[in-house]
Design a protein around this nucleic acid. Structure first.
Lengths: 191, 191
DNA sequence: TAATATATATGATGGTCGTCATATTCGCAA
DNA sequence: TTGCGAATATGACGACCATCATATATATTA
């Protein structure tokens, strides 16, 4: 019996992982229940054994997205904050390419206002944690205006990746990211 | 006959206007053909007398969105550029509220990569014009690094409005916008 | 091996989507 | 007034959507 529910939990986690990936790629509305279950190697019918509704899935998928980036965030904003490292990582070429595994903000912020209510709550909580981590790092680095500056840095980080991904010229996008990294590090006096 | 085709052109323009508004609110995928035609006071069937397909509509609707903001952009980035004015306007409370009539970048950039090809081309063209206008204004103001700085300012403008609209606490969103305005004007030495 | 509990599959429901063939309405010309 | 052509409406098509009732498979326990 323990084995059974362990298996079910693993299946649920697999569905959530696929949802978190697919929704970052295609948007929250961009993947349907049956396509999602197929990605997880299942058929559509079993879905409601794992989730109350599609909205319930979306809420947990949003959580999952932030959990996936929590470890990386903790590395740069944890005990010994490294804002320059965060900037370099957040706007790196590999982050640019890992649409389905990276930070959900560039792809989904524009959609946040029309997410199902639970999903939106969780999304906002994720944004808040990110912003507070940056603010804390800035204050540890001796900036008295950490809270305000954190908003501004987060806006530029998210805006830069969003606009880079909107460009179809990949070279131009990568140049844009490189110059954004320089500019941001310059702004916090770490160039 | 001239009257007839003038009428048809007006109808088409009305459909496009509704589409440009609705898609900024609900996303490109968020409004269907029949709901759109209903908004325009018509029924769904006549749609294909005006557009080849839904993708064709999306492409022209994107153009329409940028046309709607072209006049305002020209006011701040035209003959006599006023970057501080642009920042104050772009991140104003009224812009924050006019989701369906304002700049399409905050709402749709995250969706750009999955727009139909024609629509994406037009979206990118709109972004480029915006960015080049900022770059030109910066250079007129005597900044030698205008092209690079323009990327950065645009990223923060778009990121700030995107994140503000993602917040469900309206007061917090407006505070965020106010501090973003200050920060941006400070960055270009116009505080 | 047989019985049971649980996870997943099958298949159907009603709804909405984009698309199109066809019918209708309407304004101008004769 | 009658007829014509263009603009719009009606209604239908197949595809997909979220959801659910029911059937099947699978694994553990007896």
């Amino acid at each position: 019996m323990a084995d059974k529910s362990a298996h079910k939990a693993k299946t649920r986690a697999r569905i959530l992982g696929e949802a978190a990936g697919a929704m970052r790629m295609a948007g929250v509305q961009g993947i349907g229940v049956s396509a999602l279950m197929q990605r997880a190697g299942l058929t559509h019918g079993g879905f409601y054994a794992h989730f109350e509704s599609r909205d319930d899935l979306v809420a947990h998928a949003v959580d999952r997205m932030f959990e996936e980036s929590a470890m990386i965030l903790d590395r740069f904003l944890g005990e010994r904050p490294d804002l320059a490292g965060l900037i370099d990582h957040y706007l790196s070429e590999s982050a640019y390419r890992a649409v389905d595994r990276g930070c959900p903000l560039p792809g989904l912020s524009g959609e946040a206002a029309r997410m199902p209510p639970d999903a939106r709550l969780r999304f906002e909580a994720g944004v808040r944690r990110f912003r507070e981590g940056i603010a804390r790092a800035l204050e540890i680095a001796g900036r008295s205006d950490g809270a305000v500056l954190a908003h501004s840095l987060l806006a530029e980080l998210v805006g830069a990746m969003t606009l880079a991904r909107a460009m179809s010229d990949e070279g131009a996008a990568l140049d844009f990211l490189a110059s954004s990294r320089d500019r941001l590090k310059e702004r916090i006096g770490l160039a």
